[in-house]
Design a protein around this nucleic acid. Structure first.
Lengths: 330, 330
DNA sequence: TTGAAAGCGCTAACAG
DNA sequence: CTGTTAGCGCTTTCAA
């Protein structure tokens, strides 16, 4: 049988209240008593039952992390950092991959609610924002990470997507490119990146053409498909550079270009976004826009924990700076 | 205020016992009663508190997943599958990255114990096996995934590492290589892979030399460092092929070789292990030995859940077959 | 078919 | 400084 606070109390010759106090370092008591209880705890290898403790109102010390797909290197890198910072605060994290699927979103949100998680971290995107609004109304702390939906009033930690797009375009321009295409997702952040890219180009007198924007969803295969689409218009005006809104897409482009025997960056320059591990494994290495994942994760955890502790809603926006990592593809 | 089973009971004009029965689909009752309770539940948007339910003895419906590092693509792929299969059984998973760090192992194990997880999945490796033995003795269900330590008596789901090594060597031999090196980790599974590799070579009359085995830990940088080590012996007998015991190491080798201007696979053939997403992003693609991650994850979840439900230890060993995925590096 | 009531293990007034 | 006790929200006999 598992040892409970009662056994410890009896063995130490005190009440459960006293034991509870030493566990939680609350209240005062004679040093001698504390010592004795402590030694009994150790001797019996007593492990407080956090479920019972949670039931009395002290939270579950667990966070729900909702990402599109934990097996995507960008999110797993993010998850890892979140795990570390959360753990440093005594919090565990339950991971949930949504796959952009509304049904999964509903199921997971409900499950986490029932499990009484202390807060939610929503990363990157979410389809059914009404679900989010519901839990916000129910008073659950939420922080959005790398995801900005202005209709949702919660703290948000994001990168400056506009600036990222601007820098990508500026970099390509500096390398001499005048005709470029962009492969983007159907997301808010992609839109901002496109906008930054556009402003950078127009500021340099280059016309921005909507037809040079290709939309798809993040995957290597889709990147390759977009590449094919771009280059099957066998016209003379093919772009000399492509800005992909994430590394996965950029790698698809690299693969497509390589298959066609194109030289990178000679025939085609490529720049990605996110600076995932994948950007370091290609040959040549992928030039990309880096997000400071660790700092973003740290800030996210800090915000959510603050909100949990204060037991009142806080709404802050924290914006991080993107950084261009120049490698071989440009 | 959150709505509890009491409010529901009162509103429906029944006792909490009855509400509990309809939630859990237990006991019998008039259909009309059930209907009425159900409608009140819906109308009040009642969400049963799983923490309270856990306290009464019905488990927490959560699993602890202990991996070396969730940001490593192999483990994040694994985690994703485990999450899916666990969720299908109504279980959540708390992720924990150990980093091969004994202190973290101790902390996480203790935390998960206190949180009353229903079971543990230990993936790939673990330093302090005594911790494992302790929780086994305390009756916690455990399954080991892609990790075989014969001193620990629990269910295990692994790949046939011997066969994987054997096939890697056979493949290289078939491609005409006679002088090869192997980069391995300090793990049991690496040892088995080396052994399979050795048997394959010796069976073909090739002498196996211990000096051709390089040991390190999994990372791209270490792979590159091992490559350098192999080729800095500027002797004439440099290997024409390298078998790396995982994709990360293999990619380090690709990078090292590329930097030296070597042609792959012309000057050097490379084969990895795991078939992670990284193997698809290199150019040329990395030939590697694939582990059936989805099936392994499914089996793992099945075993742990069976053990949890039966409330008694079961010890099974499930072995999966590796598969050679031939790409451009050989 | 339904309900009363005793827990599950811990916490937090409150009293002594 | 320490203990008594009433919950936290749900489940589960056992009676009725």
């Amino acid at each position: 049988m598992k040892v409970t606070i009662y056994e410890v109390a009896k063995e130490a010759g005190v009440s459960t209240a006293t034991v509870s106090k030493v566990i939680n370092n609350t209240g005062n008591m004679r040093e001698e008593t504390r010592k004795r209880v402590l030694s009994v705890i150790k001797e019996m290898n007593y492990q407080p039952n956090l479920v019972a403790s949670a039931l009395t109102g002290k939270g579950t010390q667990t966070l729900g992390l909702l990402v599109p797909d934990i097996s995507n290197p960008f999110f797993s890198a993010m998850a890892r950092q979140i795990e570390d910072y959360a753990d440093a605060q005594g919090m565990s994290v339950i991971m949930c991959s949504m796959d952009g699927n509304i049904e999964k979103e509903r199921k997971y949100i409900e499950l986490l609610r029932r499990k009484q998680v202390d807060g939610f971290i929503i990363a990157s995107s979410f389809q059914d924002t009404n679900l989010l609004k519901d839990i916000i109304n129910q008073g659950f702390p939420i922080v959005m990470l790398a995801y900005d939906d202005s209709t949702i009033e919660v703290s948000k930690v994001t990168i400056d997507d506009f600036k990222g797009g601007y820098e990508a375009a500026s970099h390509l321009y500096a390398k001499g490119h005048r005709n470029m295409a962009i492969i983007a997702e159907h997301t808010n952040s992609s839109n901002l990146r496109i906008y930054g890219y556009r402003v950078a180009l127009e500021g340099r007198g280059i016309e921005f053409l909507d037809e040079n924007v290709y939309r798809t969803t993040a995957s290597i295969d889709n990147g390759k498909a977009s590449f094919d689409e771009i280059f099957q218009k066998e016209n003379e005006g093919s772009p000399t550079a492509i800005f992909a809104c994430n590394d996965l897409l950029a790698i698809g482009v690299i693969q497509g270009a390589t298959e066609r025997g194109m030289n990178i960056p000679g025939d085609l320059a490529i720049i990605g976004f996110d600076n995932t591990i994948l950007a370091t494994t290609t040959v040549p290495g992928l030039t990309t826009i880096s997000q400071p994942i660790a700092e973003m994760a740290e800030k996210t955890v800090e915000l959510i924990i603050t909100e949990i502790k204060q037991k009142k809603k806080v709404v802050k926006r924290v914006l991080f700076n993107p950084e261009l990592i120049s490698r071989g593809t440009t």
